[in-house]
Structure formats: C-alpha cells, structure tokens
C-alpha cells in the first residue's frame, strides 16, 4: 500500500512536469503559427495591392492601346443587344415623402 502511494505520487509529479513541458512546447508552436499567419497575411495584402494596381482601368487602357494596338470603339461600332423585357424603371420615391415647393414658404435644409 505504501509502495503504491509512492508510485502514484511519483506518477503525479511526472504528469505535472509533462503537462508543463507540453504547455511550453505547444506555446512555441502557437507562436510559430502566429508568425506564419502574419507573414501570409502580409503577403496576401501585398498581392492584393499589386492586383489592384495591375487592374487599374488606366493601366489596362494603356496596355490595350500601346501594347496590343487596340482602339476605343468608334461611333456606330457598338451595337447593344437587349432582351425585350428589360426596361429600366426609374425609382420614384413615395409621395408621402415629398412636398411641392410652391406650398413651401420656409425651406428646410434636409428633410
């Protein structure tokens, strides 16, 4: 019984030490991954800036005209083809929100 208690005690000590060591090991691992994440995020941002700069309309137009020899479509060269049901409907605000100017003796800045 005495022996068993000693063994259990030693095991507990080992477990405690192992746990502490493992916490430190995982801690370092987490820090490594965090650093990696930061570096990847940085790279992502750099690529996004680069992508945005490369897709700027001004640059595309320059490449299209100067490198590829393209020209903007001339008058009559663009033919629009639309499905018949497509009709732009202007958004008319609800009438309750509006007021006739001639009935308006005082003007308020923003209604």
């Amino acid at each position: 019984m005495k022996m068993l208690t000693i063994v259990a005690g030693v095991l507990l000590v080992f477990m405690f030490v192992w746990e502490r060591v493992d916490v430190v090991r995982v801690g370092y691992q987490i820090e490594r991954l965090k650093t990696q994440k930061v570096l990847l995020e940085r790279e992502r941002d750099q690529l996004q800036v680069k992508f945005s700069a490369l897709t700027a309309p001004e640059r595309i137009a320059k490449v299209a005209t100067e490198k590829l020899g393209l020209i903007p479509p001339q008058q009559g060269q663009v033919l629009m083809v639309h499905q018949q049901e497509e009709t732009p409907i202007p958004v008319v605000p609800p009438i309750v929100q509006v007021r006739l100017a001639r009935h308006d003796s005082t003007v308020r800045g923003n209604e």
Partner: peptide, 20 residues
Amino acid sequence: GEQVLNYLGVSRDDTVKIAL
C-alpha cells in the same frame, strides 16, 4: 456620356431587341 452609357449597357435607339 457616350462611353458611360455603353459601359452601363443602356438601350439606345438602335438597340436590337430580342424576344425571350
């Protein structure tokens, strides 16, 4: 105006209408 309307695909007088 001409370039923007073309870009937005706004129908013009000579727009070809296609029935569905």
